[in-house]
């Protein structure tokens, strides 16, 4: 364990920014927090949960994957050395699950090149970052167990800094870091972790809903209800740390010239599963929502990463942003409750 005085944070970031493309929590004009290139004026250490996970560092919203020039094919790759500072533990878990998915059997070269050249610094959460946080349930926070290069614990005047990989050595090679006293640090940190995890309530319905989906005892009609009100924006997938689906498309400028790109996609769109024959195995919006939530709560259970619960990392962003309240929290509660809140009669005149 190392210690970094809070007043030295900016100095250490400036040092890192000379070596890496440093992305960190930054305040936009209207006050939103985004991960953006380090800039002394916009950087902030005072932030909650950024609206978006840092997944676009590895899977950009739109990404050119190869170019063809005079019939010559050229892969477009990025080897830029990046440093992500201040990501939350849930997002660290999101990166690890996504990486596992993108490299499990067929390695996605575009993704893995980016992940291989990126270092991650986690800022452990001292408590819930919003009322939708449920990482203690999904076992993905409020601090990370592994996967990071460094992890910062906010102890008031200073940060305790935990090293998580050999790649961290280069980051720690700086006189601003001092050695922490092992014995007193352990007690301090244990107390910190206890108070932090106790401040984020467990959501029992997550486990209950997972069991019900597994045993097929949930009420199927809830999906019709959710399907009837979904406005198909795809926002839940775009803010999700573990959603990595993409669509591939070509720009052909002449017969021998052009490029292929990919961009974020979502299983909430009908065309995502529609087959060439016109048949769609997920034929209505209710079935598509069911697929999405089963993907998080049923198909990816008992992952081999850090004893995590399932394919959902408990960040709560889908519940924060869904305009019609079809986030994971609402879905699990409805599954367990078995009833829907739909008002209005079904009188069809």
């Amino acid at each position: 364990m190392k210690i970094l005085e809070k007043k030295s944070l900016l100095d250490i970031l400036k040092t890192w920014a000379r070596e890496y493309h440093l992305l960190c929590p930054s305040k936009t004009g209207p006050g939103d927090i985004i991960f953006d290139t380090f800039n002394e004026n916009t950087f902030t250490a005072d932030y909650k949960k950024p609206h978006l996970p840092p997944k676009s560092s590895f899977l950009p919203h739109t990404q050119k994957i190869f170019e063809v020039e005079n019939s010559e094919y050229r892969m477009v790759e990025s080897h830029e050395k990046k440093l992500l500072f201040g990501i939350r533990a849930c997002d660290m878990m999101g990166i690890r699950q996504s990486t596992s998915f993108m490299t499990r059997d067929l390695v996605d070269p575009y993704y893995s090149r980016r992940i291989d050249s990126t270092l991650c610094v986690v800022m452990a959460c001292r408590g819930p970052q919003s009322e939708t946080c449920f990482c203690t349930t999904t076992r993905s926070g409020p601090w990370a167990e592994s996967g990071f290069e460094l992890q910062f614990f906010d102890m008031g005047d200073f940060f305790l800094v935990e090293s998580g990989s050999e790649r961290a050595d280069a980051l720690l090679d700086n006189s601003l870091f001092s050695e922490a006293d092992e014995i007193s640090t352990k007690d301090q940190l244990d107390a910190w972790k206890k108070s932090s995890s106790e401040s984020i309530p467990e959501i029992p319905q997550v486990n209950q809903a997972m069991s019900m989906l597994k045993d097929r005892t949930s009420n199927e009609e809830i999906w019709d209800y959710f399907g009837s009100k979904c406005i198909i924006c795809g926002g839940c997938a775009f803010v999700c740390p573990t959603c990595t689906c993409f669509n591939v498309y070509d720009h052909i400028s002449s017969p021998a010239n052009g490029s292929r790109s990919r961009s974020w996609d979502a299983c909430l769109y009908a065309g995502f599963t529609k087959e060439a024959s016109g048949h769609n195995p997920r034929g209505d919006q209710g079935l598509r929502l069911k697929r999405r939530h089963e993907h998080k709560l049923l198909y990816f259970n008992e992952t081999d990463i850090q004893d995590a619960l399932c394919g959902c990392v408990g960040c709560g962003r889908c519940s924060d942003f869904c305009p019609v309240h079809i986030g994971t929290l609402e879905v699990v509660r409805t599954i367990v409750d078995g009833r829907t809140a739909k008002a209005g009669s079904t009188d069809k005149s």
Binding site: K229, I231, I232, C233, P323, V324, H325, A343, G344
Partner: peptide, 11 residues
């Protein structure tokens, strides 16, 4: 759709 979603929520 975002005005539509407010209608649905209000209903």
């Amino acid at each position: 759709p975002l005005i539509g979603s407010r209608l649905i929520n209000a209903i």
